[in-house]
């Protein structure tokens, strides 16, 4: 019982990340996935040239945009998938493993995104 307040405040913070990630995922991912996953590979729209991408990536704002687009949606995934697993599998003794897997995964993805974007 003594741990309840600490736990509750954690959940609030994680829910904020989930919520922010949900907004970012809803606004940014549809167009990104549509262009890079469907429109460019299927030839509906002309693929941007490598040089054009180099030009775009030279802007720190573009790299910040890509970092936000990668990191926050991962925390959105972590929160939602955690509860999908909790409720779907109903394996209470594994809840801590699931928690570590989900947020650990989101952290690893965030670090990878930061590493890649800083080394470009």
């Amino acid at each position: 019982m003594s741990e309840t307040p600490k736990k509750a405040s954690n959940e609030g913070f994680l829910w904020l990340l989930f919520s922010a990630g949900g907004v970012v995922a809803a606004i940014l991912i549809p167009i990104q996935l549509f262009l890079f996953g469907l429109a460019f590979p299927l030839g509906w729209l002309p693929q941007p040239s490598y040089d054009h991408l180099v030009y775009l990536m030279s802007s720190p704002w573009v790299r910040l945009y890509l970092f936000v687009m990668c990191s926050l949606p991962l925390f959105h995934w972590a929160h939602r998938f955690r509860f999908t697993l909790y409720d779907g599998l109903q394996v209470k003794h594994l809840n801590e493993v699931i928690f570590a897997f989900c947020y650990g995964g989101a952290l690893v993805g965030t670090v990878l995104a930061a590493y890649l974007l800083l080394s470009i």
Binding site: Q32, P73, W77
Partner: peptide, 28 residues
């Protein structure tokens, strides 16, 4: 609820895309 898997898929794909981009035009 399952849409979160697609979010993770997209981010994973983007990380691979960034890595390929970083390695140069051939890799990309």
């Amino acid at each position: 609820e399952l849409s979160s898997l697609s979010v993770a898929w997209f981010v994973g794909l983007t990380l691979f895309q960034l890595r390929a981009f970083m390695r140069g035009p051939d890799s990309y």
